[in-house]
């Protein structure tokens, strides 16, 4: 609330504004603060084997999680998975946006044809890729096998990882495309024309003028893509590989789900949730600080 308006420009009263805020505050309290508090509290408790009693164990759940090699494995896998998804989705989108930014005929139709995958649910995107890369029924899965490559993402962990990365990135490209295109179109054409007249090659113009001007957009998108890859891709993994084969595609969010829902290990699952919250808050803070800096120059 940086803009301080004189009192005559605002309404007075206490009951009415709080009444207007009430629905949102009640829902936020019930479904946000209460569960978040519960997660923190439960992460400090441990239940006995029968779920009858729980005792306070301090940071023990966190120590257990952070020293569990399978959790650390999931952590490393999440880093690899998320950076691969973000890298693929960002580079493909930037490339397509640069092409679509050219003054070519029909560029609006191209835009429409490139943005609609945003509307496809991650889980449905996974199903589409399953139809293509299923070893028995998928057209490309069969081609790979016919070419002598033993392709079966249900048996081979690396192939499973590759498939969930590509399916997740495929769905995210159009989102990035929209933002990159908006960023490109806000670059003053005069600057680019001046550089062209001075004899700068297209490639030189891209790396010295366009790319630096796009970097705030790119950074913002990087954070959004990482958050997407951390959480929204649960649907992709759940419908394609269920975290398998073995644990080859088990990411942190998938692990929270299996520990909390399938294995009913609430203390550990809560500790993992708290760690994830800290990760997201950290990412968000980095983003806000960066955005703030951008506003000032």
């Amino acid at each position: 609330m940086s803009r301080a308006a004189p009192a005559s420009f605002l309404f007075r009263g206490t009951a009415l504004p709080w009444l207007l805020l009430l629905p949102q505050l009640v829902i936020t309290g019930l479904f946000f603060f209460w569960p978040a508090g519960q997660a923190v509290w439960q992460s400090l408790l441990r239940e006995d084997a029968f779920g009858l009693r729980s005792e306070f164990v301090g940071m023990e759940n966190f120590a257990d999680v952070l020293s569990d090699p399978t959790w650390l494995g999931a952590f490393g896998r999440t880093l690899v998975f998320s950076s691969a998804v973000a890298f693929l989705a960002l580079t493909a989108a930037l490339f397509l946006a640069v092409q679509a930014d050219r003054n070519i005929r029909g560029s609006n139709a191209f835009k429409t044809l490139l943005i609609w995958p945003y509307a496809v649910a991650p889980a449905v995107a996974a199903v589409l890729w399953l139809f293509m890369f299923h070893p028995q029924i998928g057209i490309f899965g069969r081609m790979l096998n016919a070419a002598g490559i033993a392709w079966d993402y249900k048996l081979n962990g690396d192939q499973a990882m590759l498939l969930v990365i590509v399916a997740s990135a495929w769905k995210q490209v159009s989102y990035n495309f929209i933002f990159f295109l908006a960023g490109l179109q806000s670059i003053p054409k005069a600057v680019l024309e001046a550089a062209a007249i001075d004899g700068a090659s297209p490639r030189y113009r891209f790396w010295t003028i366009i790319f630096p001007l796009l970097s705030p957009t790119a950074f913002f998108l990087l954070v959004v893509n990482l958050v997407y890859a951390f959480f929204d891709t649960f649907g992709v993994i759940h419908s394609l590989t269920q975290g398998g084969p073995g644990k080859a595609t088990e990411t942190l969010i998938y692990r929270v789900y299996t520990d909390g829902v399938v294995n009913l290990n609430l203390g550990s699952s809560a500790a993992q949730s708290v760690i994830l919250m800290i990760l997201v808050v950290g990412l968000t803070v980095v983003q806000f600080r960066y955005v703030e800096r951008r506003v000032h120059y």
């Binding site: 479904f31 519960q38 929204d232 929270v256 994830l276």
Partner: peptide, 14 residues
């Protein structure tokens, strides 16, 4: 800051 996925299990308990 916190998408529903992060606090999914405690929210489920609520």
């Amino acid at each position: 800051m916190l998408p529903v996925e992060v606090r999914i299990i405690p929210t489920f308990q609520v």
